[in-house]
């Protein structure tokens, strides 16, 4: 090995070592800071009897952060976390729609996107009915349907809860 080669090897070697340490540091901190928790709450939550889930309104299940309702006789669990920017979306009794207070997104009773800045319909959780009791599986997260999906057609049955909620 000639003199120049050794010099060049050392000159590159120390830079490579610095890069290696920086890379290892970045990888370590990335891995250390990534939460170990599974997505969602990770549990099946027993809720209410399937017969008690209404056809024309919703029931809130606070421990699942979800609403239960029936669409064509089938129970669905809609996440109350807005698909836009994670605000809690309340159900408006007078219009029969979900109206987000943060940025004015509106969803119908089935969680279909109606208007506002949200990029998709409301997210959902998988449900199972065991011995007549609805179980919400908060580990199984179902991303909301794209805008334009019409699971049900239910125009607002009354005035919106706050004026201006229909604003785009």
């Amino acid at each position: 090995m000639s003199e120049m080669d050794r010099r060049r090897f050392l000159a590159r070697g120390w830079k490579a070592a610095v890069a290696l340490i920086a890379g290892a540091g970045a990888w370590t901190s990335w891995d250390a800071l990534r939460p170990r928790l599974p997505a969602g709450f990770g549990a099946k939550i027993k809720t209410i009897s399937a017969d008690d889930v209404p056809e024309d309104a919703v029931v809130e299940i606070p421990q699942a952060r979800a609403y239960l309702t029936k669409i064509d006789g089938r129970v669905v669990a809609l996440s109350e976390v807005c698909s836009h920017l994670s605000c809690r979306v309340p159900f408006c009794e007078s219009s029969g729609q979900f109206e987000c207070p943060c940025h004015g997104s509106v969803f119908n009773r089935a969680g279909d996107f109606i208007s506002g800045p949200a990029p998709r319909g409301m997210d959902m959780y998988a449900t199972e009915i065991i011995d007549g009791i609805v179980e919400v599986n908060t580990d199984e997260f179902i991303t909301g349907a794209p805008p334009g999906t019409e699971t049900i057609i239910e125009p607002p049955r009354g005035p919106a809860c706050t004026e201006g909620s229909g604003h785009a």
């Binding site: 606070p62 809690r88 309340p90 207070p101 940025h103 990029p119």
Partner: peptide, 27 residues
């Protein structure tokens, strides 16, 4: 976590971004 204040306001220096968020896709 179960009650979102209405209106939900960002600190003032992000108010312009929040105003944009009400009109455009979050991306």
């Amino acid at each position: 976590p179960t009650i979102t204040p209405n209106p939900e306001k960002a600190p003032w220096y992000f108010a312009a971004l929040q105003e944009l968020l009400a009109h455009f896709h979050p991306l």
